[in-house]
Amino acid sequence: MLNARIKLRHLMAFLEVAKRRSFARAAEALAITQPGISKAIRELEEILQTPLFERTSQGVSLTQAGLTLLRHAGPAMRALDEGVSAIGDAHHGGRWLRIGALSTVESRLLPVAIQRWHSASAAGQHDTSVSVVTGASAYLLSRLRLGELDMVVGRMTEAREIGDLYFEHLYYEPLVIVARSGHPLAQVTPVAASQLIAYPWALPPPQTTLRQQVDSFCVRHAITLPPLLLETLSLPVSYRYTLESDALWIAPREAVIEELESGLLKELALPFEAQGGSVGICTNVSMTKSLTRDAFCETLRQVAAERIIPRS
């Protein structure tokens, strides 16, 4: 039985600090004073008789006890929120499936799966809408751990933040180096790695799993990053920048396959990865089992199995 001394305000304060890694930002998000949120955390730590946070140069981080509480409190609060929302759904209709999407699945896998999901809804098989949140793996996985997302889809096996979350492999997706069709390196075979640094690069930002692969590529080929960089996870920004300049784009193959097939972009004759990274579905096993979530995961499996996504 839940300790009667633990109040909802304690858990809300704990989850907000855990999410934002800052007492000040958590207080702002909850519209209370910083002393108020500090008091709530202190009371919770006294009740549990253990520290939940420790201060670092970047803010605060969870202790092992804090991580344990987060693993259970996040999904529990999400379940409570769903219960309250379900009352409103009974009056207004509609439910939501919340999905975190990495750039590796934004172009084909996820849109096709959602289209199929909506077709099933039109056929009367369910009444669940889809909300998609994009971003870096660390951000999305933290929201999944808090119970704010039902799943995260994409390439993330290299992410340290997976921890005790469950990852299901769907297929391998490589990063490729592409340029506009008229680029000086577009017809060069083979391309030497040293030739790449004469041009700007569009690449994933630091602290992302895809950027780790870029850094590994540079180490393998004994090159450094060029002086001009565009760091972004935005596929439209990267595409337009690459199409209208001499920039080189390090992108998931899925994100550029249609442009490669149409001839607008050209893959350089220098393999970036042999097999690529594992793309799949990450879920939080501590969350209440959901038939809706399981059904959408099956839709993702079917789309992947049909090889709508070209494989290396």
Rank of each mutant, 00 (worst) to 15 (best):
N3V: 01
L8I: 11
F14D: 06
E16L: 02
E16T: 15
V17K: 03
K19E: 15
A26C: 11
A26R: 02
E28Y: 07
T33M: 07
A40C: 11
R42A: 11
E46A: 15
L48Q: 09
T50H: 01
P51R: 13
P51V: 08
G59C: 03
G59K: 03
V60G: 10
L62G: 12
Q64N: 11
G66I: 08
G66L: 03
L69G: 06
L70H: 13
A73N: 03
A73Q: 05
P75E: 12
A76T: 13
A76W: 12
M77N: 07
A79P: 09
A79S: 15
I87A: 09
G93T: 05
W96F: 08
L97R: 02
E106C: 01
R108T: 15
V112E: 14
Q115C: 10
Q115Y: 02
Q115T: 11
A122K: 13
A122T: 00
Q125I: 01
V130L: 09
T134Q: 12
L140A: 04
E148P: 08
L149E: 13
G154S: 01
E158K: 15
A159W: 12
A179N: 10
L185I: 09
Q195W: 05
Q195V: 10
P206F: 06
T209A: 15
Q213Y: 12
S216I: 08
F217R: 03
A222F: 10
A222N: 11
I223H: 01
L229A: 04
L230R: 02
L233W: 00
V237F: 11
Y239Q: 03
Y239C: 05
R240K: 06
E244G: 09
P252Y: 00
R253W: 11
E254N: 14
G263S: 02
L264Y: 02
L264G: 00
L264R: 14
L264Q: 14
L268G: 03
F272Q: 05
F272V: 04
A274I: 10
G277N: 06
G280P: 06
I281A: 07
C282K: 09
T283I: 15
V285M: 08
S286R: 12
S290M: 07
C297D: 07
V303I: 15
E306C: 06
E306H: 12
R307D: 14
S312N: 04
